[in-house]
Amino acid sequence: MFINWAQGEINLKIVYYGAGMSGKTTNLQFIYARTPPKLRSQLISLKTHQDRTLLFDFLQLEVGQVANLKPKFKLYTVPGQVYYDTSRRLILQGADGIVFVVDSQIDRMDDNEQLWHSMERHLVEMGQDLKNFPLVVQINKRDVPNTLSIPEIRRRLPIKGYPTFEAVAIKGYGVFDTLKASMSGVIAAAHQAV
């Protein structure tokens, strides 16, 4: 969270975290495409070998104000390949909320677990209390073959207690439900902090 008193804005950061090709970029591209241009910045895209890191910020006028400040959200994705650990840590710095995107496919569960644990490790290193951190889970790719059932995914990943949404991000299903839940959690935490 960063308060820009001169602009009367509170800058809040939401990071889409998850394994490579889980749908983080697809989420951001959909949100970007459906946000009126006057409310959003340019989409910045940084290429990695197999993935991209995307970021853009936007004003969300529907969520109200925090201590008379306009909330301005900045959305990020992280590169999902395991070895981009420094990059993920840098992007997580100062995050006010995280959307963890789960790839539902059976053969991606190990990657999901690995990325979940790396997220936990980074948050703990940054002094965050995982129990109270605004974390939302999106279970993506519900439309593809060879997916695990929701109960099985819940058994494999420690997502119990976090708001969870099923999604088909490529078609936009669940994308804004996930984002709204994340923004609500972040705004609630900001109200407590400011």
């Binding site: 910045i44 940084l46 990695t48 070998h49 590169p79 070895y83 981009y84 650990d85 420094t86 990059s87």
Partner: peptide, 18 residues
């Protein structure tokens, strides 16, 4: 923009270390 530079630096570092 500092953010792009810092993320690019982190990316290069990760790829160098991989």
């Amino acid at each position: 923009d500092p953010e792009s530079i810092l993320l690019e630096a982190a990316r290069q570092r990760d790829e160098f270390m991989a």
